[in-house]
Design a protein around this nucleic acid. Structure first.
Length: 243
DNA sequence: AACGTACCCTGCCGGC
DNA sequence: TGCCGGCAGGGTACGT
């Protein structure tokens, strides 16, 4: 499920509870997740986010790299099923992930660097530099999902940001004018910040402008929201305000 | 290099 | 009620 805002909200919850904690034990209930005993005894120094990745910095030069993919989440309440657990001096963090597409791995600083280096700028960490979008002929909506061009935007916020910037999702990315890319950058930052502002209740209270609203009236002009498929994923937009 | 497609795995929902 | 297809907010591997 999670895109940048949801990952940020999760990191905001994890950081105050895990930072400075010491790992007492690790537990994997899924052979795909390998957590060695080398983790035991290390101090959690920082929990941070880059794009949709969660990075846990450990003492002694090692990191835990987590990607939630579609259904991953981390919580302190023990769920019925979980793929792995980190037991610390300040409580246990459970990694639950119904579809098991998520990843949790121990990486060296070099491996972490290689992974993060592939990511484009994170709109909230590095500023929203969208110059990479000039380099591809793919539709702008599809390009926004490419983490090498912009890191953290996913299927929901791609649609939401394009609506906010009044840009048609089927436009060729490299045909957008600089002014349009500027507007899109501001729209992305605004959409992400707004979502983060909901906090942990985001899944209950968040209202989308167009996402998932096929056939319903556009909140700006009242025209009927359309759904199309691009690169095998749903795109929602208003045909009236997004030319 | 850059693009499209298939695929990974499971749960849920609507229709029959 | 039970089964089945379609769908899901992610990324990767592979072929062209």
């Amino acid at each position: 499920m999670p895109e940048l805002p949801e990952v940020q909200i999760l990191v905001n919850q994890l950081a105050p509870r895990l930072e400075r904690a010491r790992i007492r034990a690790v537990e994997s209930r899924d052979p795909m997740i390998k957590l060695g005993r080398q983790l035991v005894g290390r101090r959690i120094q920082r929990v941070r986010r880059q794009g949709k990745n969660i990075v846990v910095d450990l003492s002694g030069g090692l990191h835990l790299l987590v990607h939630l993919r579609m259904t991953g989440w981390i919580e302190f309440e023990r769920p019925k099923r979980y793929r792995a657990a980190i037991h610390t001096t300040r409580g246990t963090a459970y990694f639950e992930d119904a579809r098991r597409l998520g990843t949790m791995q121990v990486v060296t600083p070099e491996q972490l660097g290689r992974t993060l280096k592939k990511l484009g700028p994170d709109p909230l960490v590095d500023g929203c530099d969208l110059s990479g979008l000039h380099t591809t002929s793919r539709p702008i909506k599809v390009a926004l999902l490419d983490q090498q061009l912009v890191a953290g935007v996913g299927n929901i916020y791609a649609s939401e940001s394009l609506w906010r910037a009044r840009i048609n999702p089927r436009r060729r990315s490299d045909n957008l004018k600089s002014a349009e890319l500027g507007a899109l950058g501001r729209a992305i930052v605004a959409s992400l910040r707004r979502a983060i502002g909901y906090g942990p209740r985001i899944f209950e209270v968040q209202q989308f402008a167009v996402y998932g609203r096929k056939g319903k009236p556009c909140r700006r002009c009242g025209a009927m929201v359309r759904r199309v498929v691009q690169a095998q994923r749903s795109t929602y937009f208003c045909p009236e305000c997004q030319r």
